[in-house]
Design a binder for these strands. Structure first.
Length: 923
DNA sequence: CTTCTGGAACAAAGA
DNA sequence: AATCTTTGTTCCAGA
């Protein structure tokens, strides 16, 4: 049901967007997340941590884990149609459509987890599972992110991308995909197979409910299938512009789309199912036929077996891989690459995962092994039989927080910061093209990320994926994927992993390097809009949705068994060739605030300013309505491509008693506007003094909507709301964070803030520290909450649309929730919580966060304790999250509550938020 | 010769 | 329904 809604929403969003880049989907994400969450195990990928967590997990029932989604799907299947919708959601978040991917369900011994899960999970579906815990392994789709792509993938003929990526993806995909977050499979190496197993094929079938279906449908391919919409596919493809000509493609056309590639045949098809490729509707008939229901079944069985194996392998290997310490980068890469590729080839068989996996293992394992041992010692200890079951779960569990969860950048002593921001423009490459290189920094170098406060000698894995940069909460970008760059010029080792439909680049964070990593190995791949939009769960539209952020995550295992997950998001990066060349971009402004009288000249620096560029100041109400708009006077004579001087216009009301946040943008034409920039008008008599904190906050918060809170939207660009933001910020934030933020932030923040609105979030991140400031603005308080959720702030200013969207979200319920600031925003809690440590977090609001789900997830024990709050154990959490939709609850409410809450205890608030998601009950 | 890019043609989607 | 504009995707060619 809810699902349907989503679709509807989808449409709406569409509409909205148009002008801006809007997207719709928050909801979905939420979904997916939720599910995942439950599972959430400690580490997703190769983390060493896994082992430990693993254990715990095992003990805990949780194992079942895997992806709730999947579970859900199954259930849904029962329901049937619903499933379809479901999937999407689930997919979205993770990327991969659960539906599509085939899953393997294993009945877990430990039911407990399940129980928990069930409980936690609001969804009925889950409940169904009820007693028996079933572990579902999702099969990864071939393409994972671009399901559709299956076709395309092939297409990717482009040599490199295709091969490498594809291969890598595939391999990776599967594993990760399975459960994006959870999937145990993820283990890179191993995974491949798993992935392969996956079934992708199967899932594809899944479109509808039953995963299995796919096969039949699938003829095409599992991969394609993923979408599960064979029909659609065809249609889609046709749709897909790409297709050549027109494609008129009709149905048959399916092939068209990516078609080319697919056909080309990659070996995949041949092999069998490889879902991935097969998808291609290859005109031929897809080779893929291979996958038939029968195959499925067979495969599934195999999978089961293989799955176990894979899981085992994963256990052994996963952790290891990440580090890659000993292995020379090149070597590793190579290895990796190969393995993936290998796997790919093999995969076709699908069934064969095993082989691939093995291969991988061999490669990695040996080296990795050492590390793993360290990390995973626990795992090893576990009895084999346990392995079989447990392991899988573990993997699943490893699943770290879902990618669409908002995490803080700092927790306790830890602070993940982006020391050097990427350039604001980076032309992404299509699969049909060669790589366009790694994302660069403004300085000409590359982005740099560093983890502060980590004193252990054990290396960690820095994860990087491409996230959205719109007003909504940060989540994996459906239309872009990270692309691993290798070569002489690349000094940083990296490894690709698929989680859900999102490709993640894993980069070692070594103590010897001060836990600092130069990100010179990350390019950005653009997926065809038509491919992605066809995906079942996908609600976002690709058109004009060309801004992304680099999202970095690190998962730190702590002695107490908990895992602290931190996340930092870069400034927005425009990935469209045209947009990068035509859209004006404001990177810095000489003045952030000024008395309402205006009159001062402000220097803007950025890109693409034209002689006829205009600067427009706008003030929006919470609801997105324009309260005020005026064109500022631009000094035409001084306009340069990179600089522009504008006179600050007087505010509409010269008698404001408190700072008013507004926005302004540079316009080169009807549809060529920069993102909103924040500006704060101060009461005329008030000295200019800006309190940074206050200003920032205020401005942000108010900006668009002064007082009110605009919900998320406003948050995004306009002003972040301080209060909420803080906590949220942390969570969300990428930047720095919380307390530290100030100190630390400087580097990053500065840049960020000026440049991108998105950054604003950063401001949030500032978080708590500013709390005082928060206090200042009551309004903000409320907003904050919402905002938190909504990264949106970042996004577009534009927002009005957003507003609508917002509205939608709530309504939408589940998925949105997740995305929506609301619930997700709360997620932050997790992060915080995990850190528990962080008093900081508390300050913000979040105190509640302390208990963050993560914690729970990671450490069962914690879960128990927390469970009450959050929804209990991780599983529950997840479920709840999932349910969130229902949660739709209302961000608004929260805000209000928040105010009080703040007064009382931020922490509680946070909890509430979380709970809210889960339930208001607590409240 | 391969990869990286910048530019731009071509075509679909919107207005 | 026709036409212009905008944007996405594919190609080409030079470095």
């Amino acid at each position: 049901m809810s699902f349907q809604h989503e679709e509807e929403e989808f449409d709406f969003s569409y509409i909205f967007e148009y002008g801006q880049d809007v997207q719709k989907e928050p909801e979905r994400d939420a979904y997916s997340y939720t599910p995942n969450v439950s599972l959430s195990l400690p580490l997703g990928v190769g983390n060493p941590c896994l082992a430990t967590q693993y254990h715990t997990l095992q003990s805990s029932p949780i194992i079942s884990v895997s992806s709730c989604h999947q579970m859900g799907y199954n259930l849904q299947n029962d329901n049937h149609a619903a499933s379809g919708y479901y999937f999407p959601h689930s997919l979205r978040p993770n990327g991969a459509p659960a539906l599509e991917s085939p899953r393997i369900e294993i009945t877990a011994y430990s039911q407990c987890p399940e129980n928990e899960v069930e409980e936690s999970s609001t969804e009925d579906h889950f409940i169904k599972r009820g007693v028996n815990s079933i572990v579902t392994l999702t099969l990864p789709n071939a393409d994972g992110y671009r399901d559709p792509s299956c076709l395309s993938p092939a297409s990717s003929i482009s040599s490199r991308s295709c091969n490498s990526e594809a291969s890598s993806y595939e391999s990776g995909f599967y594993n990760y995909d399975n459960s994006p977050q959870n999937s145990p499979w993820q283990s890179p190496c191993v995974s491949p197979k798993g992935s392969s197993s996956l079934l992708s094929c199967p899932h594809s079938g899944g479109p509808a409910g039953s995963p299995y279906h796919s096969p039949s449908t699938s003829p095409q391919i599992g991969a394609m299938a993923e979408e599960g919409w064979p029909a659609q596919h065809r249609g889609s493809r046709p749709n897909s512009p790409s297709c050549s000509g027109g494609s008129g493609g009709t149905g048959g056309g399916g092939g068209m789309g990516k078609r080319k590639y697919s056909f080309n045949g990659t070996s995949y098809n041949q092999t069998s199912c490889s879902p991935n490729q097969s998808p291609t509707p290859s005109p031929h008939g897809s080779p893929r036929v291979s996958i038939t229901d029968e195959n499925w079944l067979a495969s599934t069985n195999q999978y089961t077996n293989s799955a176990i194996v894979a899981a085992i392998n994963a256990l052994t290997t996963d952790g290891v891989v990440d580090m890659g310490e000993g292995i020379p980068i090149k070597t590793r890469k190579t290895m990796l690459d190969h393995s993936p590729s290998m796997s790919l080839k093999v995969e076709p068989g699908g069934d064969e995962l095993g082989p691939d996996g093995e291969i991988c293992h061999e490669d990695y394992p040996s080296r990795l092994a050492l590390k793993k041992e360290n990390y995973c010692a626990g795992f090893l200890d576990v009895p084999q039989h346990l392995y079989s079951w447990s392991k899988p779960k573990p993997y699943l569990s490893p699943s770290l927080p879902a990618l669409d969860w908002q995490l803080p950048s700092c927790s306790g002593p830890y602070n993940l910061q982006i020391e050097v921001q990427p350039k604001s423009h980076h032309r992404a490459h299509y699969e049909t093209e060669g790589s366009r290189g790694a994302v660069k920094a403004l300085s000409g170098g590359h982005p740099v990320v560093q983890l502060y406060g980590y004193m252990e000698s054990e290396p960690l894995t820095l994860q990087l994926f491409i996230g959205t940069a719109d007003d909504r909460l940060l989540r994996p970008h459906a239309f872009y994927q990270v692309h691993r760059i290798t070569g002489k010029t690349v000094s940083t080792a990296s490894h690709e992993v698929m989680q859900s439909n999102t490709k993640i680049l894993e980069i070692p964070l070594l103590p010897e390097n001060n836990m600092r990593a130069i990100i010179d190995c990350a390019g950005i791949l653009k997926l065809r809009n038509s491919d992605i939009e066809l995906r079942k769960g996908e609600t976002d539209i690709g058109r004009k949705n060309t801004r992304v952020r680099l999202v970095f995550r690190v998962h730190i295992n702590q002695p107490n068994g908990r895992t602290v997950s931190l996340q930092a998001a870069s400034n927005p990066i425009e990935c469209s060739q045209r947009s990068a060349q035509e859209l004006p971009l404001v990177e810095k402004q000489s003045v952030d605030s000024y008395p309402a009288t205006g009159g001062k000249m402000m220097l803007l620096s950025g890109l693409n300013f034209l002689p006829d560029s205009k600067v427009v100041f706008v003030e929006k109400a919470q609801d997105g309505h324009h309260l005020w708009e005026t064109e500022a006077k631009v000094d035409k004579d001084s306009i340069k491509s990179s600089t522009l001087v504008v006179e600050i216009p007087p505010y509409r009301n010269q008698r404001i008693s408190s700072p008013v946040n507004v926005n302004f943008y540079v316009c080169n034409g009807k549809r060529k506007r920069s993102q909103y920039q924040r500006f704060t008008y101060l009461p005329p008599n008030v000295p200019m003094i800006k309190t940074e904190p206050s200003d920032e906050y205020d401005s942000r918060g108010t900006a668009g909507l002064p007082m009110h809170s605009k919900p998320y939207y406003s948050q995004s660009r306009l002003t972040p709301i301080m209060p909420v933001s803080d906590s949220d910020a942390c969570l969300v934030g990428g930047y720095s964070p919380c307390p530290p933020r100030h100190a630390a932030m400087p580097t990053s923040s500065p840049s960020s803030s000026p440049t991108l609105h998105d950054l604003s979030p950063v401001a949030y991140s500032k978080c708590l520290p500013s709390s005082p400031s928060h206090a200042v603005l009551p309004g903000p308080m409320v907003a904050p909450i919402q905002e938190t959720p909504g990264h949106p702030s970042l996004a577009h200013p534009a927002s009005p649309d957003h507003n609508t969207s917002l509205g939608m979200l709530p309504s939408q319920g589940s998925p949105n929730h997740l995305n929506s600031p609301g619930p997700h925003g709360y997620h932050p809690v997790y992060a915080k919580s995990s850190p528990s440590s962080s008093p900081v977090s508390h300050p913000s609001t979040p105190g509640g966060t302390a208990e963050s789900p993560f914690m729970q997830a990671y450490s069962p024990s914690h879960a128990a304790a927390n469970s009450s709050h959050a929804g209990g154990s991780s599983p529950s959490l997840l479920s709840e999250d999932a349910s969130p939709p229902s949660m739709a609850i209302t961000v608004k409410q929260e805000p209000q509550e928040l105010d009080q809450m703040y007064l009382d205890d931020v922490n509680e608030i946070i909890r509430n938020d979380l709970s809210s998601i889960s339930v208001h009950t607590h409240a």
